[in-house]
Design a binder for these strands. Structure first.
Lengths: 234, 234
DNA sequence: AAGTGGTCTAGACCACTTC
DNA sequence: AAGTGGTCTAGACCACTTT
């Protein structure tokens, strides 16, 4: 917690000054040279400290002018979504290969007769059904299917040996939805109930959808939490 | 898009190598000295490139060992939440000062008879009610109330002149909820309808709640979207 | 002992902005 | 012209890890 190093001392001092408002938004903090002589150190060390604050989204340098204090960004939130949350049990309802059909062909941008791997699971919390989870992705011929999918039926891990892991990302949509009868039955809630619905589209390379997932949460379990995070806005 | 500078060239080269899997997770990339001689440059320049990749969550240095490639983090999502989304109209339903009562006193950690400012608004998209928004925060005596709140009834901007902006953050909870009658009436949906509900608690300093907000989305408008982001995990 | 990353120096030159 | 940030050098010494 101590600032044993010069660059940490500078970063901490400036961070405090900005936090308490000594330097407000759009104001300029002392220049690199000023700080270097004030702390009896080199410009390189000062720049190291300033880069840290820049990466924290507190300041932004402008060539020829100086370092400006940024306004905090309140609109950006971080949301952690675990495919299989800690303390959650799972039961497989179905593992199959079926034609896509009208709605799934849209999400995955494939023909309606494309064969899809379908994985349906039920999630449990303390032995009570908490969510109904479905996953769909194109069936690759000759793949040793069932065993592999059973082993890790998690998004997007299922794809990491088919696609370049660093080029996979996920789009998430959170909304309410009228649950199909099968879902209501499995979750033990009245037919036609409106539930929290999370849709995930896994994309690779040039925004190509390679997987689609849907999850319905039982009425008392569907809570997602997010926390605001201040990041730099360029 | 070009890499005019040495440090950019190094960073781009390494980033590509990691992305295509030339260096996989938990593997070590070439050392600082190796890279310095390979690119005929100084260690300082190499370190600058490596710091960029570290901040991108691709690698992590280990003292005495080397730089290790990290696994991508798929569980973290970024969600942007705008109090007043672009293209949205608002109508004020109520601005008032009322005692907290049983449930709000819990969220704001105040006594039940604490006087709260209450702001209720209706959001519109293309002249159709899209969400019902409520905000609550303790009433500070002697504050020129109405005019100020009307001016910016946005979270957490309402608090930035009372609290240190950099010490304010927001906790968000996304779930379904049975909408109260007043909400259903305002949104034009059947009584007792289950809607998407977003709760926000604004906190300051030592996790002290200073504001609480609730928003119900009309059935066809309640969609939140999030995108996965790879960040370093320490 | 040799290799690794971590901190730091005292310069240099360039590009941009302001006066 | 003077001040600002942006890039880069060629060293130095320290701390940690492996052999």
């Amino acid at each position: 917690m101590e600032s044993n190093y010069v660059y940490q001392t500078i970063a901490n001092d400036l961070r405090s000054a900005i936090t308490i408002g000594k330097y407000g938004p759009d104001e300029i903090i002392p220049s690199e040279n000023t700080l270097a002589s004030r702390y009896h150190t080199s410009r390189v060390t000062v720049r190291k400290a300033l880069l840290i604050l820049e990466n924290e989204g507190l300041i932004r340098p402008q060539h020829g002018k100086g370092y400006f204090v940024l306004s905090p960004e309140y609109r950006s939130f971080q949301l952690d979504f675990y495919d299989k949350p800690a303390g959650t049990g799972t039961r497989y309802l179905e593992i199959n290969v079926l034609p896509a059909g009208p709605d799934l062909s849209g999400y995955l941008e494939v023909a309606e007769d494309t064969m899809l791997v379908v994985i349906r699971r039920l999630l449990f919390e303390r032995d009570i059904p908490s969510a109904y989870d479905e996953k769909f992705f194109p069936y690759v011929k000759g793949e040793p299917l069932i065993e592999r999918e059973l082993h890790y039926a998690e998004f997007p891990d299922v794809f990491t040996d088919q696609y370049v892991p660093r080029k996979i990302w996920t789009n998430m949509e959170i909304r309410t939805g009228e649950a199909p009868d099968a879902v209501c039955t499995a979750l033990g809630c009245p037919q036609g109930e409106t539930l929290l619905l999370v849709r995930r589209t896994v994309l690779a390379d040039e925004n190509t959808p390679i997987g689609f997932g849907r999850r319905w949460y039982a009425p008392d379990f569907g809570v997602l939490t997010a926390v605001s995070n201040f990041r730099s806005h360029y």
